[in-house]
Simulated assay, not measured.
Amino acid sequence: MKKIKWRLLQDNIKEPAKHFAAEEALLRGVDKGITPPTLRIRKYYPSVWLGIYQDIDEDINLTYCNKNNIPIIRRHNPGGTVYQDEGSFCFSAFFKKKNFFKYLNIKDPEKLYELFGEIIVNTLKNFNVDAEISPVNDVVVKDKKIYGSAQIDFYSAFVHSGTFLFNVDIEEMQKVLSPSNLKFVDKGFINVEDRVINLKELVNKNVKKEDVIQKFIQIFSNFFEIDLTNNPFNNDEIKLIKKLYEEKYSNKEWTFKKFPDSSIKVSRKSKSGVINLNVKLDKSNNIIKNVFLTGDFLAPSSSSLLNFYKILKNTPLNRVNKKIKKLNFSNDFKNTLIKLFEKIKKEGNNNE
Rank of each mutant, 00 (worst) to 15 (best):
K326A: 11
G273H: 08
P36S: 14
I226K: 09
F100I: 08
D296Q: 02
F91N: 00
F216S: 10
H19P: 00
V207I: 15
D130A: 12
N231Y: 14
V203H: 05
N77V: 08
I264A: 09
R195E: 12
R7D: 09
I60H: 09
V291A: 11
S272H: 03
K98L: 07
I70E: 06
V207H: 13
V140W: 02
L337Q: 10
D227Q: 15
K326N: 12
K339M: 10
I324H: 04
L50G: 00
N321D: 15
S221L: 10
S304H: 11
N321E: 15
Q151I: 00
D11K: 00
R28A: 03
I146M: 11
F223E: 05
S270F: 06
I41E: 02
G295R: 00
W254C: 05
S304E: 15
N181H: 10
I120W: 06
S284R: 13
N61K: 10
Q10K: 15
S156G: 03
F329H: 10
E193L: 14
Q218L: 07
N307V: 06
G80W: 04
I13M: 01
V203A: 08
E193Y: 13
R319K: 15
N318P: 08
V279K: 03
L112P: 00
F341V: 00
Y103F: 14
K323T: 09
T315W: 05
E193R: 13
S262I: 06
W6L: 05
F329C: 11
I13C: 02
R319G: 06
I170L: 15
N349S: 13
C65W: 07
S302Y: 13
E110V: 12
Q10S: 13
F127S: 07
V139A: 07
N331A: 12
T336N: 14
Y309K: 13
G80D: 04
D227R: 09
A25W: 01
K252S: 15
W254N: 00
Q10H: 10
I119Y: 05
K280I: 06
